[in-house]
């Protein structure tokens, strides 16, 4: 689900040139909202196997914070990148406090949902069916994003805007509307990513920072602003993490950063730089 967070980061950076640290917070918020939505829905008689519906709804519902946040970020449009980093990092800290205020400081877990679909044995190891569902969902969303960007009018306008916003405006494209939608889509990718991951783990208020670090590794490996890069980078980071945890858990972070440094030295622009976003 790292892919979703990184994809949201890429999309917003590619179009708005805003490096949005707060994408990690959207992930955390999505996770908490997912827990709350599922708990509420199960409490109101939703059959357990349908919990993913509530989960996704909880994640998606949070995308409503997109437009107001986009409005806030627009105040620094065109200024130095350091303003973006400061403001989006401030958002990270503020949203972390919002989470503590609403859900409390203790980790929140979604009990009993993870194994509802049972487990299957794949290539000799036991895998919860839910994990397969998450993998499939990631693939479907990646494919959907690809189709959205290459096959729809909105996607083509987004790509045109990403490439040359001044010319796009002269062709009648309302930047503000495109930005608002793209940013909200970026938020939704993050919140849905957070919601999807939560049955398998626990929501903690610090998860925003953790995922930002990983998302940046993904973006550096894949190339900033590239959607395919986000997908490939997320796969690389995911496999590396899993492999490291299975063999030497101590080097989990180290392994990722060795690759990040390798990419920075050999291909500073990232593996997929310049490719279609």
């Amino acid at each position: 689900m790292l892919f979703l967070v990184a994809a949201g980061l890429q999309l917003v950076f590619g179009v708005q040139k805003i490096l949005n640290l707060a994408c990690g917070s959207f992930y955390a918020l999505g996770a908490y909202a997912g827990v709350s939505a599922v708990t509420w829905a199960l409490g109101h008689g939703l059959p357990a196997p349908l919990f993913v519906v509530a989960l996704l709804a909880g994640g998606l519902a949070l995308a409503v914070i997109g437009p107001p946040l986009e409005r806030l970020l627009r105040t620094i449009d065109g200024r130095d990148e350091s303003f973006q980093l400061l403001l989006t990092f401030a958002l990270v800290l503020m949203l972390e406090d919002v989470i503590r205020f609403v859900w409390g400081p203790a980790p929140v877990q979604l009990r009993g949902a993870y194994l509802v679909y049972g487990q299957v044995t794949v290539a000799g190891s036991t895998v919860p069916v839910y994990n397969l569902f998450v993998i499939a969902a990631g693939g479907v969303i990646a494919l959907g994003m690809g189709l959205l960007l290459t096959r729809t009018r909105f996607g083509r306008i987004v790509r045109a805007t990403a490439e040359n916003r001044e010319v796009a405006a002269a062709l009648g494209v309302d930047m503000r509307r495109v930005y608002r939608r793209v940013f909200t889509l970026g938020v939704a990718l993050g919140t849905v990513g957070g919601a999807l991951v939560i049955p398998a783990t626990a929501a903690v208020s610090e998860m925003a920072i953790e995922v930002i670090v990983d998302a940046f590794a993904v973006v550096v490996i894949g190339g900033l602003g590239s959607m395919r890069g986000a997908f490939a980078g997320a796969l690389i980071v995911g496999v590396l993490k899993a492999g490291a945890i299975a063999t030497w858990p101590e080097v989990e972070m180290l392994a990722i950063y060795v690759v990040v440094i390798g990419v920075l030295v050999l291909r500073p622009a990232g593996l997929f730089a310049g490719a279609t976003p």
């Binding site: 083509r156 045109a160 001044e166 010319v167 494209v173 279609t276």
Partner: peptide
């Protein structure tokens, strides 16, 4: 010129018909 390199020639021209 400001041609969108990422879009096809046809898409470059069509954009203006969508926005107006």
């Amino acid at each position: 010129s400001g041609v969108f390199a990422d879009l096809s020639v046809a898409e470059n021209i069509e954009i203006a018909t969508w926005t107006r």
